[in-house]
Design a protein around this nucleic acid. Structure first.
Lengths: 198, 198
DNA sequence: GGCTATTATTGACGATTCGTCAATAGCTAT
DNA sequence: ATAGCTATTGACGAATCGTCAATAATAGCC
């Protein structure tokens, strides 16, 4: 129902193919909307194969989510050879670009569709914590206060939710979004600066 | 295992009791960590009773989530007899207060723990959309642009994620949080104002 | 080009869980 | 007390999960 390739593949190729399928599938139907039998049929393989590669239903879902979040984390790495303001803009721009390109999947998988249990949420949360530490690093904040971390972490939630809403409503240009996200960071910067002094 | 009341209760009382239990249960274990048999046993009732009241497993979970989100929506209603700035601060303060009081449950249920499918997410999203429209109303914005809505909606994500992180790390006072959340709204206001003119 | 070893792949199976429903039992009112 | 109403139960069939021995497609060797 989707295969088209040879019946027997190398483990790596098959794994990649199944993950690519999982991305589409889970974006469309949620985790657990369809039983594993049906998922396997749609993927063009037997149920046993899915269990062989991913252990269980949650395993398949988690690895799919991990593939997406890893991608986001990799793409939004701020360039190290630029001053903060510039690197920061690059990061935001790349994030918005990713959402623009993979909108439906991003929205359904990372924020909208699901997040069925604690382990999955920790996976998704890794995007937020990684971004937070990257910003703290680039600003040379050694021992951030609780409020600082909350502020940055909250700002990441702002761009996540903003982008998620954007994928649904549309109607704003990427540059408008990017400019707003950057301006929304100013209050965060103020919190950070007010603490650098103390 | 939890009951203590009479064996037979009025439908309303039983319903309320089960929802109260569900809140604790789902906050601790996620949706679907335990089978319905075990959940019923912990609640001190039969499995059949849970199905009688809530239809199915998802039904029980959804109604529990709905109870929490309804509560949040009710509590954060901005007072109508005050100017915007004041009403806005009241709204934020009440939200932070709610999280401070029901931290674990809020975090686990609304953001952290789960959100297992599309319907549940729509339920949780209602908090964000309601807050967004309330703000637009209070600011007398009749036909908001896409960017305006995204900005406000994103800001709601900021306070949600900020509060969620706060429940985990602690370490900041409520007033610090509130002040930051309010200052973080300034860039949103700027977006709104720049469009009022056009 | 056939043959064999390797291993990717399958589908039937037992175990678990879901959701139903006729039967039960606790409360209220007369 | 007793009868009627209905909240509550637990055993049942259907569906789904996850396993595992059997299968078959490929690659390498002669």
């Amino acid at each position: 129902m989707m295969d088209l390739g040879p019946r027997r593949m190398t483990t790596e190729a098959r794994r990649a193919q199944l993950l690519a399928f999982g991305r589409q599938h889970f974006a469309e139907h949620g985790y657990e909307a369809l039983p594993m039998d049906a998922i396997a049929e749609r993927a063009g393989v037997s149920k046993g194969l899915l269990y062989h590669y991913f252990g269980n239903q949650r395993g398949f879902y988690m690895e799919t989510v991990r593939a997406v979040t890893d991608e986001v984390i990799a793409i939004t790495e701020p360039p190290a050879d630029q001053p903060f303001e510039q690197a920061f803009r690059v990061m935001v721009t790349r994030f918005v670009g990713y959402v623009q390109e993979h909108g439906a999947i991003y929205n359904a998988l990372v924020r909208g569709g699901l997040g069925s249990d604690i382990e999955v949420n920790e996976l998704i949360d890794r995007v937020r914590t990684t971004t937070t530490s990257r910003i703290l690093e680039r600003l040379r904040v050694r021992q951030p206060s609780a409020l600082s971390e909350i502020a940055i972490y909250g700002w990441v939630g702002l761009i996540e939710n903003g982008c998620a809403e954007w994928t649904v409503t549309g109607g704003a240009s990427p540059s408008q979004l990017i400019d707003f996200f950057i301006s929304a960071f100013e209050p965060v910067l103020e919190v950070l600066q007010s603490e650098q002094c103390s």
